[in-house]
Design a protein around this nucleic acid. Sequence first.
DNA 1: GGTTTGCGAGAGCAGTGCTCTCTGTTGTGA
DNA 2: TCACAACAGAGAGCACTGCTCTCGCAAACC
Lengths: 243, 243
Amino acid sequence: MSRALLSVLWQTGVMSAPRTARERARAELTGEIKAAARRQLETSGAESLSLRAISRELGMVSSALYRYFPSRDELLTALVIDAYDALGEAAESAAQKEYPHPREAWVAVYAAVRDWARANPHEYALIYGSPITGYQAPQTTVQPAARVPMVLLNILSQAHAEGWLPEVEAPEPSGRLAEQVDTIAPLAPGVPRPMLLRLVIAWTQLFGMISFELFGQLVGSMDPADDFFLETSRQMAKYVGIS
Amino acid sequence: MSRALLSVLWQTGVMSAPRTARERARAELTGEIKAAARRQLETSGAESLSLRAISRELGMVSSALYRYFPSRDELLTALVIDAYDALGEAAESAAQKEYPHPREAWVAVYAAVRDWARANPHEYALIYGSPITGYQAPQTTVQPAARVPMVLLNILSQAHAEGWLPEVEAPEPSGRLAEQVDTIAPLAPGVPRPMLLRLVIAWTQLFGMISFELFGQLVGSMDPADDFFLETSRQMAKYVGIS
DNA sequence: GGTTTGCGAGAGCAGTGCTCTCTGTTGTGA
DNA sequence: TCACAACAGAGAGCACTGCTCTCGCAAACC
């Protein structure tokens, strides 16, 4: 197996436990670079993330960083994936607990997503703010980005299986919209299409609400947003049929 | 009246029609700078907006730009305000038309906001994406930012006045949330508090949905988003009580 | 043990925001 | 009318950025 392939397999997380000392050092340094970048992200923002500052912090020369990340954008991509994974992790672990009612699971996931966003506002902005200029999010980010909506889908699907989804009158999607809803239908077997559509609506609402809170759009109306957020999460649970 | 004050009054739009030739030239150049900046914004993004590139385009030296905008952030602030105003303008003019039913006004405003966002994605990202690093949006942006929600409030309030708001069962906000809802209540006289709360929810949903579409978050599910957007705008109209 | 591969250092390029100083012009109050 | 103040642009310069290239050295492999 070639060195390059090994490196790819390891970087993508397919393989773990680097074998040679060099690979071990590389893994460690890659992690340290990302950690320093994340630390820098906390104080400044994404667009003022400086490779030179990172290299200074790690006591190396800036050009050496390019052995680990071919460009600033690649480093940002790595941070993006890590952020999606951290957020997905938070949502999943909130959903894994036991709840007497799916509504509470739903509300808990909402709260977990918000808490993570408030604790890591710059990382949140990195993934849900404006896309970084001239940089197309690679396909690698799609799967980790889907973790939060997957958690919501699972709650809904499980609620349906347990008979928590009563009949709610909601318009049946038609035409192309029905097709689009059908592409996600296999992920939540049994859930009626109107409720799947509403789940997408709720999903966009969730992140719109968090973005508004973090980006200061709620100042003057719903800030601080704790009560607003809690009440909204309950209403949205009902909106998608959980009651 | 001092020169500096005059300049402020003019820049903020309180005064129009500059009097002296110098002021006329200044007004024109300020506009040209913003126009060039906007042009540059279209191709690149906010964070790669370069004062030097603008000055090159206008055939002047970069330091001369600082006679008009004390810093890059100030220029961005001016662009932010212009963007809010352009978007507010679009929403307001959509709402001013005559509609047989407030639902259609609501849907039309949704569409106008989305159309503007899709036509000016970088300006949209400037105001609804991640905030620019180390730069706090000044108070001047608050009022223009409120134009879109004001349009929605007006539709709701007018719908109530015309008797289009039937009794819908929705939870009454309590505690601090009720207080917060009450701060916006005078802007939409007569509208029940539960519906005001839902309007805020719909507002956050609208921009969450548009951001998701523009920032590529809907790829793989609801992209292209035309049908999804239309259906959602209808459901949200109903959600806030318009039916 | 020789050869390939990976790694860090250093210099350098083209670009950035911003400041300071200088010269010329425009507007204004005495 | 005329001196003085305010303003405008040019140019040099500072400290910084991402990124490239070359050069030695050390680790890994055959």
